[in-house]
Design a protein around this nucleic acid. Structure first.
Length: 474
DNA sequence: TTTTAATCCTGCACGGCACG
DNA sequence: CGTGCCGTGCAGGATTAAAA
């Protein structure tokens, strides 16, 4: 099969020598991850992406300061969504994996979290936009057909007009009901965008006894969605496919762990992009070469144009890729290492994460293979060794960020649960102080006497050295 | 989703205790 | 004995969990 669109091969990269510099820098940092201890971090493995995509990622970093972690992860999401139910990968007999992803971009406000996502899903939004215009046209014709039919009752065998269906990929604002309805009409697969993950989580079990949670867990596994409703038609979606992208502020990551009984299994299912040492930067003089934008659009459109084969029972029958022998061997090798790491892990939360990574390495292999195909850099008959190796690079990055998130949840400092006033007061107190000194400071910041004295009783924050004298513990 | 109950936090008042 | 330090019960507000 050949690509419907081809990327411009004439595109001249030679004038863009800065790319090599940036890439050298980026690759130097990600040189080896295996020997590092768990507190070091791995930089985002740009080299996992196809050549042309690497150029786009680096150009976006250079011209618009998009962190490579964000744009790269957002691109994985975009490709995941574009693949949908068209392709799966076979691991073993009776075990296939889809390209479904849950991703989250983590960073402080104003650090370019949403722009990279908007850029990478741009081609899909364009597609949704044009199908919506067609839909409106069809609705217009449908209404006309209905009215003609009403008037012209004389023809008994008049063709029943078909109510048009809106096809779309992206859902921004949704309720569980509207989402399943959209998915019912778009069985190829849809994607949602959640602006603040923490608040999304918080409302999971609020109003409906955990069924939201259940829904997202089973969707992640690609299980069927079966809903019987009191009002409206029952819904049955055999292979559900809803990829999720979200953002969250680093400072409220710890909220994911609150009331941890229900959410823990969930954070393991999310791949986190967390750029190291992220800060706001100055505008750059460099402009994004339009060819990069063009190339990305071509690639995504190649994927979006893939049809979903439908079998004789009217259900989807995706094309199934399998691993090459070498690729499968590498996968097995990694799985052994991961299993050992998992078994020797001291804590159950870590085990949960590691077992999800085992699924994700397969899914990322599929996504990367399809991405390479879309970029015209390989075929899509099998998943090759090279692809598996790249997927493993990515997984090790996501293992690292996943552990980072876990650390946020586990040892969030006792300071985090304080109100901002108390936190400020605590920080302005000297290491050693007498009650009277502290009281003065507290009053100047508007904290009442009793409140301050009760505050002093918190053993995790203060130690009483002697009568009327305290020292800070943190 | 709205209503209700439970829990936590805060400010106030008061009384006991340590210290010089 | 005076002064500052410390603990506690209570009421009302805010937040969170449970019920309707």
């Amino acid at each position: 099969m050949s690509n419907r669109y081809s990327l411009s091969p004439e595109f001249d990269f030679s004038g863009l020598t800065f790319l090599d510099e940036v890439r050298a820098e980026a690759n130097g940092k990600s040189a080896n991850y295996q020997g590092l201890d768990r507190h070091n971090s791995i930089s985002f493995p740009i080299s996992a992406f196809p050549e042309k995509v690497q150029h786009i990622i680096l150009a976006l970093q250079e011209s618009l300061q998009y962190p490579v972690d964000f744009i790269g992860t957002a691109m994985l999401y975009t490709v995941s969504l574009a693949i949908g139910n068209t392709h799966k990968v076979k691991v073993k007999e009776n075990w296939t994996e889809s390209a479904l992803l849950y991703i989250a971009l983590v960073g402080a406000p104003g650090t370019m979290k949403s722009h990279p996502l908007s850029f990478s899903i741009g081609p899909i939004i364009d597609r949704d936009c044009s199908t919506f215009r067609e839909y409106e046209k069809k609705v217009h014709e449908y209404k006309k057909a209905i009215s003609i039919k009403a008037k012209g009752r004389t023809k008994p065998e008049y063709d029943e007009p078909i109510k048009p269906v809106l096809h779309k990929f992206l859902v921004q604002d949704f309720t569980p009901e509207s989402l399943t309805e959209t998915h019912r009409l778009n069985k190829r697969g849809i994607g949602v965008y959640v602006d603040e993950l923490a608040s999304w989580f918080k409302n999971f079990n609020r109003y409906n006894n955990g069924s939201d949670q259940e829904f997202w867990l089973s969707n992640w596994s690609g299980k069927p969605i079966i809903i019987d409703r009191k009002t409206g038609d029952p819904i049955f979606i055999k292979s559900s496919y809803i990829s999720v992208a979200g953002t969250i502020q680093e400072s409220i990551l710890s909220e994911l762990g609150r009331g941890n009984r229900s959410q823990n299994g969930f954070t393991d299912r999310i791949l986190f992009a967390m750029p190291e040492g992220l800060k706001k930067s100055y505008w750059s003089d460099r402009e994004l070469h339009p060819q990069h934008l063009q190339n990305w659009h071509v690639m995504v459109n190649n994927l979006l144009d893939l049809p979903v084969p439908i079998d004789e029972t009217d259900s989807l029958s995706p094309t199934v890729l399998s691993f090459t022998d070498e690729g499968y061997a590498r996968l097995k090798e990694w799985q052994r290492e991961n299993t050992d790491k998992c078994n020797s892990a001291d804590n159950d939360m870590v085990k949960g994460l590691y077992s999800k990574l085992e699924v994700y390495v397969i899914r990322l292999s599929l996504i990367l293979q399809m991405m390479q195909w879309a970029a015209g850099e390989s075929d899509k008959r099998t998943v090759e060794l090279n692809t598996v190796a790249r997927a493993i690079d990515l997984i090790e990055y996501f293992r690292n960020t996943g552990m980072k998130v876990k650390r946020y949840l586990l040892d969030s400092s006792p300071l985090d649960k304080l109100t901002s006033e108390k936190k400020l007061l605590y920080q302005s107190l000297p290491i050693n102080f007498s009650t009277g000194q502290g009281l003065l400071l507290a009053k100047s910041q508007g904290v009442a006497e009793v409140t301050f004295k009760r505050f002093l009783n918190d053993n995790s924050l203060f130690e009483r050295v002697s009568y009327g004298n305290y020292s800070k513990k943190i």
